[in-house]
Design a protein around this nucleic acid. Structure first.
Length: 673
DNA sequence: CAGTGAGCGAGCTTCCGCTTGACTT
């Protein structure tokens, strides 16, 4: 009996949908893209209208074979890949392969789309099929071709001018740039001194503190006191004015609402898992994948979360009802808002092919599934479950109070406090404090206008402004998402590319650019600024959108990019010397030989050099020590490197003994050992 | 481990975005 064939991208999704559709359907997975450009030059031919030579992807053959076989006997074929640009292209590739085999004439082909996996949504999709959108497919092809052309023309230029094996690309290069630019900011940063003044107060045995907010009749600003002497004077004057007591002159009370955050998408999940669980982006994705694919619960395999690679904060109506029901029964009706909370997707270039990340069933509380999960899975599931629950709960209510204490006529202290009167969503989910900010609102004793409080002391605290922090995996993903660089499925792999190329290293979970990374970044920024610009992807996305709406053609779009791009590549190949590309720094003249002392990036890493390779004598070399950087090493430190190798003496047999520093640290050698 | 860095120059490297692989014994 002939069946209808329905094709999706993910096998876990195929299993679920198969259950919903029953006997009439066979549901197969493509396992993502099935054809791609090979990793070779010439896969895109700019001289022939950017003709693209696709090849079956490694490992796709068995999946394609299965699809072909099923298509031969199917009575209809439904292409149900994701509803975004990439998904449309996958459907088209499947169609093309089946067309080449002569399988598209006999039975109808339908393109169907749904953004939530529920029986209702899938049935509705099947009842309302559409045609393949070649405009959307062509937008994808333009994206694909451009990425290939950028990567496979810039990378070889780097091999020629800097070092073999390096890489550049539309996405990895701006990401590298963020890391390098941040490091430069940190190096250029001059800390500024400032002082804070705080009063330690007490009311009926309850201590609290208040900050100085007004001094000399004016708002007290961060840098108003910038030295110890002045801080001391101010403190003495205030102590004198107060005389051991302060009076609460003004008390302002306010009720504040605090709203929950939207449910997770890929980027926010990676950020929160990094902050709260200290998971790497890769670890988070691997663990989420396991939760998505499901675990055996009482003998039945069950997916625990929805799809984890998504850029949409939207929840299906079924999910909203499910969460609200669970919130009501677990926390009580007060915690269920009158209407569901709605969130807007704010990330640039979002394609919203999937729902937000949420538990497939809110009733599966973390406690209930704990014994089926390993520790990492449990902690990630709990995070996802709590965040999704919280996103549909009522706001938290806080009573805030601000009390001002005048100290003499010209100065004022202020104490802030807040009390949670109704926890709302906080009952399910703790909000983490963003980087660099400190939460300092605490509880205050009950204070009313006119109350006198004891002054214990006034403290002057010295502070220095701090440079911006280096990027963590979490903050880098956040920044990439803000610029629209990279996609949910690639954030984690971009990070591993930067590490694999040794463009950056992780030091205490923060990215530090290497010399290689800095040299590559500088080369690209100096000579290809347009293509590594943060705005490049954003502009490209606008143009691709126009293509997908049928308002622009993809080939002219590529032509407009390609002609100036390849011209620039050719030009730079001629005009930029290797020395310039490698960022050779001349530090000074060697006092002994009078030759130039330089630092540069060599084949085996950064090194210092006396003399030039065109000199009659071979130049002398010395590798930089760990921690020394091409951009920052001083002349003196570089000369110091040449004090080794040093002869210590000779062995009784007359062999020379010397000491040197090699790749693996200092060592002593004698003779040829 | 190996303690280099020129020169000769073959053959190699490289993009982004979708999705999970698992042979035998």
């Amino acid at each position: 009996m002939a069946k209808k064939l329905l094709i999706v991208e993910s096998p876990a999704k195929a299993t679920t949908i198969n259950r919903y559709l029953g006997e009439d359907f066979e549901v197969l997975a493509s396992y993502g893209h099935i054809r791609d450009l090979p990793s070779k030059d010439g896969a895109v031919d700019p001289d022939n209208d950017f003709a693209m030579r696709y090849e079956l992807s490694e490992g796709s053959k068995k999946h394609v074979d299965k699809i072909v076989k099923a298509a031969r006997k199917a009575e209809a074929v439904y292409l149900a890949t994701d509803l975004d640009r990439e998904g449309e292209a996958i459907s088209w590739h499947i169609y093309e392969i089946l067309r080449e085999k002569g399988l598209t004439d006999k039975v109808p082909y339908y393109r169907v789309e749904f953004s939530e996996i529920t029986p209702r949504a899938i049935k509705a999709a099947i009842d309302n099929p559409r045609k393949l959108s070649m405009d959307l497919v062509n937008a994808q092809q333009a994206r694909r071709a451009l990425d290939h052309l950028v990567g496979f023309n810039l990378s070889p230029l780097l091999w020629k001018k800097i070092k073999t094996g390096l890489s550049a690309g539309r996405v990895q290069s701006p990401a590298l740039r963020m890391i390098v630019e941040r490091e430069r900011e940190i190096e250029a940063f001059n800390p500024r001194e400032y002082w804070s003044i705080e009063a330690d107060l007490e009311k009926e045995g309850n201590p609290f503190s208040a900050k100085l907010v007004r001094l000399d009749g004016d708002t007290f600003r961060q840098f108003d006191i910038d030295n110890e002497k002045r801080a001391h004077e101010v403190r003495q004057a205030l102590l004198g004015n107060a005389n051991g007591k302060l009076v609460a002159n003004r008390v302002k009370r306010k009720e504040r609402k605090r709203r929950p955050a939207p449910p997770f998408i890929t980027s926010t999940l990676q950020q929160d898992a990094s902050r709260k669980l200290r998971f790497s982006a890769q670890n988070t994705m691997r663990t989420a994948q396991a939760l998505y694919e499901g675990v055996a619960i009482d003998g039945v395999n069950q997916g625990l979360i929805t799809y984890m690679r998504t850029d949409s904060v939207a929840l299906s109506n079924d999910a909203l009802a499910d969460l609200r029901k669970q919130i009501g029964s677990q926390f009580g009706d007060r915690y269920v808002p009158k209407k569901p909370n709605f969130y807007k997707t704010k990330s640039k270039n979002a394609q919203e092919a999937h729902e937000a990340i949420r538990p497939t069933s809110a009733a599966l509380t973390p406690d209930k599934v704990r014994r089926y999960l390993d520790d990492r899975q449990f902690r990630l599931y709990e995070l996802i479950w709590r965040r999704a629950m919280a996103s549909q709960m009522a706001p938290a209510l806080l009573d805030t109070v601000a009390v001002e204490f005048d100290c003499g006529d010209d100065a004022t202290f202020r104490a802030n406090g807040s009390v949670i009167t109704f926890p709302g969503f906080l009952a399910a989910y703790e909000v983490s404090v963003p980087e660099g900010k400190q939460e300092q609102e605490s509880q205050l004793p009950d204070i009313n206008e006119g109350d006198r409080v004891q002054l214990q002391d006034i403290r002057a605290g010295q502070h220095f402004t701090e440079p911006p922090p280096r990027y963590s995996e979490a903050s880098l993903v956040k920044a990439m998402e803000e610029y629209g660089i990279g996609r949910p499925s690639t954030y984690a792999s971009i990070i591993s590319t930067l590490l694999r190329r040794h463009y950056a290293e992780l030091d205490r979970r923060r990215f530090v650019p290497t010399d290689t990374g800095r040299v590559v970044e500088r080369f690209l920024e100096n000579h290809f600024s347009h293509y590594v610009d943060y705005e490049f992807t954003a502009k490209l996305e606008d143009e691709l959108d126009a293509v997908s709406r049928g308002e622009a053609e993809w080939i002219p779009l590529l032509r407009e990019f390609w002609d100036p791009f390849i011209k620039k590549v050719k030009e730079k190949e001629e005009t930029v010397s290797r020395d310039e590309a490698k960022n050779v720094r001349v530090l000074g003249k060697d006092p002994k030989s009078g030759k130039d002392v330089t630092v540069r990036l060599g084949r085996y890493g950064p090194h210092a050099q006396i003399g030039h390779r065109d000199d009659e004598d071979k130049p002398k070399f010395a590798g930089l020590r760990p921690g020394q950087k091409i951009d920052t090493i001083t002349f003196e430190d570089a000369l110091e490197l040449f004090r080794l190798p040093r002869k210590l003496g000779s062995t009784p047999e007359g062999e020379a003994v010397s000491v040197n520093v090699g790749r693996y640290g200092p060592y002593v050698r004698y003779g040829d050992k």
